[in-house]
Design a protein around this nucleic acid. Structure first.
Ligand SMILES: [Zn+2]
Ligand SMILES: [Zn+2]
Ligand SMILES: [Zn+2]
Ligand SMILES: [Zn+2]
Lengths: 140, 140
DNA sequence: TTTTTTATGTAATAATATAACATACAATAT
DNA sequence: ATATTGTATGTTATATTATTACATAAAAAA
């Protein structure tokens, strides 16, 4: 997981505009223990900026998604900070059905498997998302 | 992909009630070339039964999902008929970014990889969903 | 400074999904 | 056959998730 400082630095280096709603949304997602939903982000955002509306939250989320600091957990409609550096073509998540914890796990074998299994089908993989449901060690 | 006859048979064998909305929804999903969205299913359903409401569609979709004849493509909010037999713990989908085609692909290696990579993390995987975006052979 | 690009504020609405409760139907037991 | 029970549907309303559209503001570039 990135510290705020590092992220600020990376944004400066890349000339990405780090505005107030963006920064606050990143903080909210980063500080959330489990994946957080857009409207919960919006609620928390109301503590920081005046009367924010959905587009404000969604735009900021999209910004961080685009730069790979935040992932969307599709099966949960929720967002979580990236824990593996800010750029990778594929992501794997271990989702605990009991406590809701989501562990981002880089299974490095996946990419090769994808290549092998898709080349012969002549499908060209560009990115992927693997969501694995089960029970975490706390809960099983 | 299952023929309607086979599905009717399987339902009888298992004493699953095959009602009109269920059968029509299955037909709509099965006959759709690409994954189809709930409200598009609902629209088509209106040609078959009188003035159906969202719960009618969603309940039928859920029924088929539960019995693994239909999958939800999470990143598309859309539903597609299973093409690999009516029960498996994990599913893999190749999604063409260009034409929208979704190929259900059973990469048999995945389960072992999951086991290997999650045992040492003591996460117990129960089911998984892998969505791979890219370009199909028609489009690349 | 002017122009252009990018981001935000705001209102409205679209798209996706479920809750709640009444009614109908099917399966089972008497 | 009839009563009882469980399951499915019909219907209204509402919750949840996300985007469109357009005006304003701020930053970057010319
Ligand atoms: Zn990540
Ligand atoms: Zn857990
Ligand atoms: Zn399948
Ligand atoms: Zn294609």
């Amino acid at each position: 997981m990135f510290k705020e400082e590092q992220i600020i630095k990376i944004c400066k280096q890349n000339k990405w505009r780090l505005t107030e709603p963006r920064l606050e949304v990143l903080r909210i997602i980063s500080h959330s223990k489990n994946p957080i939903k857009a409207y919960d982000i919006l609620k928390k955002l109301a503590n920081k900026i005046k009367n924010p509306k959905p587009p404000t939250a969604y735009r900021a989320i999209q910004f961080w998604q685009k730069h790979n600091f935040v992932h969307r957990i599709e099966s949960l409609n929720a967002y979580q900070a990236c824990s593996h550096g800010h750029s990778h073509a594929g992501a794997q998540f271990l989702i605990c059905d009991d406590c809701g914890k989501v562990i981002e796990s880089n299974l490095h074998e996946i990419p090769e498997i994808l290549k092998k299994n898709t080349e012969n089908k002549t499908f060209k993989p560009l990115r992927w998302n693997l969501e694995i449901n089960g029970l975490c060690n706390q809960c099983s």
